[in-house]
């Protein structure tokens, strides 16, 4: 919130920081998770079900974007799929819960 004279404005925090000469410090996390082998279309479908209020897109290079959280294939074998999950601190809640779902939800079936 900025106040000029008698007026009060609600502004984007990033924009206000720029105006005050403060540089935002960008924090990004990248973590790896292994899930059972499946196509990225199936991963997309499962994520869509878990995150019905987010845009869940399959990109042209075969990665998935959930909001601004990136899910990318890092390696695959017959049984498993290694994924890189990367998100900015601004998307911490989404990134962290998405990562945990991949780790616990999908990955829990690999032990059979």
């Amino acid at each position: 919130v900025t106040i000029s004279g008698e007026k009060m404005h609600l502004e984007d925090a990033s924009k206000t920081m720029q105006q005050l000469g403060m540089t935002e410090h960008e924090i990004r996390f990248t973590s790896t998770v292994t899930i059972p082998s499946m196509s990225m279309e199936v991963v997309q479908k499962k994520l869509k079900r878990r995150f019905p209020h987010q845009s869940v897109q399959l990109t042209s290079d075969g990665s998935i974007l959930v909001g601004s959280v990136l899910v990318k294939v890092a390696g695959e074998s017959e049984e498993s799929l290694d994924l890189l999950v990367s998100w900015p601190y601004q998307e911490e809640d989404l990134g962290s819960s998405l990562f945990t779902i991949l780790q616990h939800g999908f990955a829990s079936h690999t032990e059979t």
């Binding site: 540089t23 935002e24 973590s31 990562f99 945990t100």
Partner: peptide, 22 residues
């Protein structure tokens, strides 16, 4: 202007690093 944390799936460690950094 930026920090990137790469973890091998260790979520408790990542959260600890996040909070330490913040």
């Amino acid at each position: 202007g930026s920090t990137h944390i790469f973890c091998e799936g260790n979520e408790p460690l990542r959260r600890k690093l996040r909070d330490t950094l913040i």
